[in-house]
């Protein structure tokens, strides 16, 4: 039975590994989009006017309030026409179509961003006001304060939460199998259907996911320690 996991043309091993690679690529890109969306949304909530604040609230409430699967279906079916319409606004004519890859990245990124927004907002609010006052008193410019004080401090508070968001994003990529994109879950699904060995292939997928989540958790732990290295020195 295990020969089904072999590499080469007779087994599914290489397909599964390629699928895992695709999962990782989608997850990283989606997480990147999520961080950008999350930061923008958090900035809008903290410093924006009424309109921006409202938009951010709508975004985080709606996307966190409906299942990710539904977001994927929506983008999958409606994304192409929405993109065509949006492109029309900028003077492009003709049809814009989004591949399952782009849709997967966008949909998971959208969900990721809504959760990241809450984490980032909380972290920025956790930065003691005194730190910022001190910086201002020293005559630092806004940009410099942002770069030297706010971001490093907020990042430290945000890292554990962002680590959770990453784990969620990674696992959410499994849902884009419904679009037919050949990521880890889809490959396992197809292989289990064609070989009639669902247990074997879903266990394989589960083990690979465990490796991915555990491995990335270790990386985040390192990052957390690094971000907190100044704290320990101060405390010692």
């Amino acid at each position: 039975m295990l020969d089904l996991l072999q590499f080469g043309d007779s087994g599914w091993g290489d397909e599964i590994l390629r699928g895992a690679g695709m999962t990782l690529v989608v997850a990283v890109l989606a997480y990147g989009i999520g961080l950008v969306l999350g930061s923008l949304s958090a900035a809008a909530t903290l410093a924006g006017g009424l309109l921006l604040r409202g938009a951010a609230a709508v975004y985080t409430t709606v996307v966190r309030g409906v299942p990710a699967l539904l977001v994927i279906w929506l983008l999958f079916f409606g994304g192409g026409s929405a993109a065509t319409w949006a492109a029309g606004l900028f003077g492009f004519s003709g049809r814009v179509d989004l591949s399952p890859f782009v849709i997967g990245v966008l949909a998971v990124g959208l969900v990721s961003g809504a959760y990241a927004a809450e984490v980032i907002r909380g972290a920025v609010q956790a930065v003691p006001a005194g730190q910022l006052e001190a910086a201002r008193a020293l005559g630092m410019q806004r940009g410099l304060i942002l770069r030297r004080i706010l971001v490093p401090l907020a990042l430290r508070y945000a890292l554990p939460g962002l680590s959770n968001v990453w784990q969620m994003t990674l696992k959410d990529t499994s849902l884009i199998m419904v679009t037919g994109l050949a990521e880890l879950m889809r490959v396992s699904f197809v292989a289990s259907g064609s070989t009639r060995q669902p247990f074997l292939f879903y266990i394989a997928a589960a083990v690979i996911f465990m490796l991915l989540t555990t491995g990335s958790e270790l990386l985040f732990h390192r990052a957390e320690r690094r971000a907190a290295r100044g704290v320990r020195r101060a405390g010692a």
């Binding site: 409202g54 709508v58 975004y59 709606v62 409606g78 026409s81 929405a82 049809r95």
Partner: peptide
């Protein structure tokens, strides 16, 4: 209450977007 309002507003925006998307299909003939 604010959240409910936000949700309703979001829904309205999506509905409008969806409506616009639908029109597009017919021009391709």
């Amino acid at each position: 209450m604010k959240r409910v309002f936000a949700a309703v507003a979001a829904l309205a925006v999506t509905l409008v977007l969806a409506g616009c998307g639908q029109e597009e299909n017919k021009q391709q003939a």
